[in-house]
Computed example of a mutant assay.
Amino acid sequence: MPAGASAYDFYLQVQQLDPGNTQAAAGIQILVMQLVERARDALRQRSFGEVNSLLNRADEIAPGNPLSKEVRDQLQREQTRARQDVTLDGPGAQTVTLPVKELGARSDTMVEMLNAIAQRIREHQLRVVIVARSDAEGRWIYSQLRQAVPGYRVRGDIKLGNPPRLLLQKNP
Rank of each mutant, 00 (worst) to 15 (best):
V128Q: 03
R57D: 13
L55Q: 14
S107M: 03
N162H: 09
R77D: 12
L167S: 05
L126P: 08
G49A: 11
R83L: 12
I121A: 10
P66S: 07
A93S: 14
L54W: 06
Q94F: 13
R57M: 04
R46P: 06
D73E: 08
N56T: 05
L114D: 01
T95I: 09
D135G: 11
N56W: 07
R122H: 15
A118E: 00
P164I: 00
V128R: 15
L114W: 09
T80R: 15
Y152H: 06
E102I: 00
V71S: 06
N56R: 13
Q119H: 10
R57H: 14
V129M: 12
V111D: 13
L55V: 02
V96M: 13
G49L: 04
L55M: 07
K159T: 04
A118S: 11
A118N: 03
R122C: 06
L43S: 01
K101G: 04
L54N: 07
I141T: 04
I158F: 10
R72S: 04
V111E: 08
L43Y: 10
R146T: 06
R122S: 08
Y152C: 09
V86M: 13
P66R: 05
S68H: 05
P99R: 09
L67D: 15
D135M: 08
Y142G: 10
S134D: 02
R122F: 10
A105T: 06
M110P: 10
A42Y: 01
A105F: 13
N65I: 00
L67E: 15
Q84C: 06
R146A: 13
D89A: 12
V111K: 15
D41E: 04
L145V: 02
Q147D: 11
Q119M: 07
D59R: 11
L114M: 03
A62K: 11
A132N: 01
Q119N: 13
I130Q: 10
R72P: 12
D41M: 09
P63R: 02
S134M: 02
I117N: 08
S47A: 14
F48Q: 04
V131K: 13
A82N: 12
D135Y: 11
A132Y: 01
P66W: 06
L166T: 01
N65V: 01
T109P: 05
R46T: 01
R106C: 12
G161H: 10
A132H: 00
A58L: 02
E50L: 10
L126V: 02
A62E: 04
V111Q: 15
V96Y: 12
S143D: 09
I158Y: 09
P99Y: 06
F48M: 04
I61F: 12
N56E: 07
G90K: 03
V149L: 06
R83A: 14
S107I: 00
G161N: 05
D135F: 11
L88R: 11
N56Q: 14
L75R: 01
V129K: 14
Q119S: 12
H124V: 02
A116W: 08
Y142S: 12
I61M: 14
I121F: 07
S47W: 07
I61L: 15
D157T: 05
Q94H: 13
P63A: 01
S47D: 13
A82V: 02
R153N: 11
S143M: 01
Q76V: 14
